[in-house]
Design a protein around this nucleic acid. Structure first.
Lengths: 206, 206
DNA sequence: TTATATCATTGACATAATATCAATTAAATA
DNA sequence: TATTTAATTGATATTATGTCAATGATATAA
């Protein structure tokens, strides 16, 4: 029989079971990391039989990938921020702000990000998901570079897509270092330094 | 009884067994990748009983780590190349050459590098080994930056260690992309673009 | 209301890999 | 030749995964 929300009692229960598994997954992944977390433990915590998790998720990877969705969305938001500066100074300050935002977004979910970092190395599926984020950022940055080149603000003897890639990697890796606590510098300092190198280069003369 | 080379027949045989295992490992790792390669298969190829590999190597990671040694050495060589330019132009061309060399070193062992990339994500031990290479590069680059800053060639408002890190990551990730065939641009073009951004920055004005 | 069909859940099972270790085999020494 | 020492082995315990036939619970039809 159908209820107000269009879901039968059976469907509601199933949905709840799925949710329980996701919640349990979150706890277990955060506690154990991706590798050490087992389906047995997740099912135990969700009060479901061993086989149940496999009804809702093809495997551990898929369960985890679903838990990543929130963060993936946030990253896409950051990637698609507008960038149309009219002066070099404006470009610099916008870039600095975006670097900060990118790293801050990761820090907002620091513990989950640590597990994601681990999972990228282990799970094909997670790796693919992260690659998509990466590709999106690189595409956006390429667009931004082409824009400032067309506007005459930037050097045209540079291959936009290549530099976009390099610049993104610089940001991503620094982000991981900060998330993992391997770089302790203040976020503002990091953003400033990266933005400076990017807009102006390391050397003095042209 | 001891022989001319100071090794008993027994020791020689043991050494040969070890070598057989390493050779078999190389073949199997290249064929299967790190994850899919099994100790069973490696022992089979080496014509040794299953337990034998564990006599010589604590586990799969350690066997692989030993196979990495060659490449690790080569990378250290690249990392410790001298850098003492006297002009900005000289700095640029030296940097460009070093980027090229770094990526070329990886391409010289492309297939092994692919497996290493995979193994970094999976094995703690391999990850640690690669981190050491990374740390070494970053330390060297930091030194180089400090040198050109002291020599008055480079801007002093930049934190050497931070920029060294960012610059290294840009190089490393591009290297992986090229090794994995995800970036197909000519090596010379890549080196030029990276070196240009690094020495001069993306934007025109100061 | 009862019978039947459908869907959710279960846990035992097959599979596949790891690392260990007591037993075996081969070499060195007495 | 006998004894000790070292190298090798493969059966075994362990630990995870993913599957599936059986069971239990809910929905639908008679």
């Amino acid at each position: 029989m159908n209820h107000e929300d269009g879901l039968s009692k059976r469907q509601q229960k199933a949905l709840q079971t799925r949710l329980n598994l996701l919640n349990a997954g979150k706890v277990i992944f955060l506690k154990e990391g991706f590798q050490k977390a087992t389906m047995t433990e997740i099912n135990k915590r969700a009060n479901t039989g061993y086989g149940t998790a496999y009804v809702y998720f093809k495997n551990k990877d898929e369960l985890f990938a679903e838990l990543m969705e929130n963060i993936v969305e946030k990253m896409y938001d950051v990637a698609s921020m507008p960038f149309e500066p009219t002066t070099v100074e404006e470009a610099y300050s916008q870039i600095k702000a975006q670097v900060r935002l990118f790293i801050q977004a990761a820090l907002d979910e620091q513990e989950t990000m640590k597990v994601i970092k681990e999972a990228i190395g282990i799970s094909e599926m997670v790796e693919r998901k992260w690659s998509q984020i990466r590709a999106r950022f690189i595409a956006e940055i390429t667009k931004d570079i082409t824009f400032v080149q067309t506007a005459g603000m930037a050097n045209k003897d540079i291959e936009a897509s290549l530099i976009a890639r390099g610049w993104y990697y610089m940001n991503e890796q620094l982000m991981w270092d900060i998330v993992l606590g391997e770089v302790v510098e203040d976020l503002t300092i990091v953003a400033e330094n990266l933005a400076l190198l990017y807009t102006r280069g390391l050397y003095k003369v042209r």
